[in-house]
């Protein structure tokens, strides 16, 4: 039962306006990028130069006025937009800080909601520390592991299918988690459909189980033995998959070399671990795969 007043109540919050901008920008710029990429693919297929390399576009023009005027216009539009936004919408200010009263839901700033969402599926040290670190390092590593010389400095898709699809996957995953965290996560970080009332009293069944419980292993068993299936599963995930992939896509492996291939696969498998864990949670109510005395995965 969708009700507008509940939906608008959340959308109307001034701090959620950037989310709306984000969704619009995501649609517009993804469309532009892909449109230009497919256009260039077509040009290459027909043996024509890409749009950026057309003689007309390659022609050198003077910075003054050709670049400066568009920069100036962009600056003006941006400032006008920001001024109008600031005139008509006031930044929120809630009650004075009070350590004694915890608002429900208490949410991180919107750009960190992806991380907060990960907390549902992973322990804090993975969701809050390991994953952000991996994201930053992984992003910085992109130029060093993507050695494909094609597609440098122009939009394209066919020449960089793998790189673009992996990046877009991570990019959209991040964005979707943010939108979900803003609009669909209510009190107690419970899931609410759009237009559903954010009921503080909502109780969801807590029926998540660990992998060994799924397999009916006695929790009292020595952990190393108890976690054998988990260790095997993780071993298969992080070792066997890269091995098999390297055999199937032999050229891909050879192009990258061992070191690059290893780093690429680790990053890729870590990236995939989030959706995999999400799906396992939804379907099998899986809490942890591996439970050790020190940490859980």
């Amino acid at each position: 039962m969708f009700r507008w007043e509940f939906f608008l109540e959340i959308i109307k919050k001034p701090d959620n306006i950037p989310i709306i901008l984000l969704i619009i920008a995501l649609i517009v710029y993804t469309w532009i990028a892909l449109y230009k990429a497919f256009d260039n693919d077509k040009r290459l297929a027909e043996g024509r130069p890409v749009w950026e390399a057309e003689p007309h576009n390659q022609e050198k023009v003077h910075t003054w006025p050709h670049l400066l005027n568009i920069e100036f216009i962009a600056a003006i539009i941006l400032m006008a937009g920001l001024t109008l936004w600031s005139v008509f919408l006031n930044a929120p200010l809630e009650e004075p800080a009070n350590p004694g009263v915890t608002p429900n839901p208490s949410k991180a700033p919107w750009y960190f909601l992806g991380l907060q969402e990960m907390l549902v599926y992973f322990d804090p040290w993975i969701a809050g520390v390991l994953m952000p670190t991996i994201i930053i390092i992984g992003l910085m590593a992109i130029p060093y592991i993507d050695t494909n010389p094609k597609g440098n400095g122009y939009y394209c898709w066919k020449d960089r299918k793998f790189a673009i699809s992996v990046f877009m996957f991570g990019w959209f995953l991040w964005m979707i988690l943010i939108v979900q965290g803003t609009i669909l996560r209510g009190p107690g970080w419970n899931f609410f459909w759009p237009g559903e009332y954010w009921d503080v009293h909502k109780v969801v069944p807590l029926v998540n189980v660990n992998l060994y419980e799924l397999l009916n292993i006695d929790p009292k068993t020595f952990w190393l033995i108890r976690e054998m299936p988990a260790l095997i599963l993780l071993g298969l995930y992080f070792l066997l998959i890269p091995y098999i992939v390297s055999k199937i896509y032999r050229k891909f492996y050879e192009d990258l070399g061992f070191a690059r291939y290893t780093v690429t696969m680790i990053l890729l498998l870590l990236l995939m671990s989030l959706p995999i864990k999400m799906i396992l949670r939804w379907t099998l109510n899986l809490k942890y795969i591996l439970v050790t005395p020190w940490f859980n995965i």
Partner: peptide, 22 residues
């Protein structure tokens, strides 16, 4: 910096991740 409930609890949630640094 505004030091309201929104600020304090967003930062509390955000910095709670630091508890879990290995």
């Amino acid at each position: 910096l505004p030091w309201d409930q929104l600020a304090m609890w967003a930062i509390t949630v955000g910095t709670n991740m630091a508890r879990a640094v290995p």
